[in-house]
Design a protein around this nucleic acid. Structure first.
Lengths: 134, 134
DNA sequence: GTATATGCAAACCCTTTGCACATCT
DNA sequence: AGATGTGCAAAGGGTTTGCATATAC
């Protein structure tokens, strides 16, 4: 049986407040605002549990630590709402996209069976496109 | 200036012979057939160099070590031929796909600029789809 | 009271780096 | 000879795990 701990709450809250996918270190930093003794291992353990319950999803970019995002609010019932990601190459943040180009079956040679796909777009987000930004 | 060493050769050969993207450990194992003293650090160093020269490309899957593939032969002139990947969820191998669904600009909200995209398909490869396979 | 979650430290895996020695040109 | 590459061992970063303690039920 899952217990209700302040740490649990804090991790999920950090993910929900941020609109972007966050790394475990970022989550730790933010969640410590409400639970100062929070530990990285606990963050990982909570993320693992939330992942299983499909309350959060994992997003990974080559050569970077994994990021986690709160499961989409639009997903009523839908256990893990299908979506993709946009990676801003300037500020390095990752945003969720709610569109999908559709089936990818045409891309594979005969004999392959496609079950799912992951898509990541790279470019500049609105703030980095216009103003200056790190 | 780049030097010509047996190690260099062996790494590139291992990648060219395998039709799939290989992890550094797999490359080491295969390349040791021709250069038994070969070391993992050397594999990484050679891969780094080959990556810069765009002779190999990196492919990464969440939660797995990075894989490397020899640059596509079809890419005459084309420094890094644009393509995507298929990941077999049964045998865990990664294959190159030579098709692309095209521009992804429609997927982003106004204000985002798309420069590139990565796409990975998941499913079963021909050998795993039919016969049994680990 | 008992089971589960936490915090800490150590372990783990993948990757990078420092350094002495070997190798290529 | 001089510069670059190699092998080894140690260090680094992210993630996982063992264990005693604290906490929720």
């Amino acid at each position: 049986m899952e217990r209700n701990t302040r740490q649990q709450e804090a991790v999920l809250e950090a993910l929900r407040r941020g609109r972007e996918a966050l790394t475990p270190a970022e989550i730790l930093q933010r969640a410590r605002a409400s639970v100062p003794t929070l530990n990285l291992s606990t963050v990982y353990r909570r993320l693992g549990a939330l992942l299983e319950q499909e309350q959060v999803a994992i997003v990974s970019l080559p050569g970077q630590p994994a990021r986690y995002e709160a499961a989409c609010e639009h997903a009523h019932g839908d256990p893990a709402h299908h979506h993709h990601h946009f990676h801003c190459t300037t500020c390095d943040r990752v945003f969720a996209l709610h569109a999908c180009p559709g089936s990818m079956k045409k891309l594979v040679p005969n004999g392959f069976r496609v079950d799912s796909h992951d898509l990541t777009l790279h470019g500049r987000c609105p703030s980095c496109k216009s103003g200056a930004r790190a």
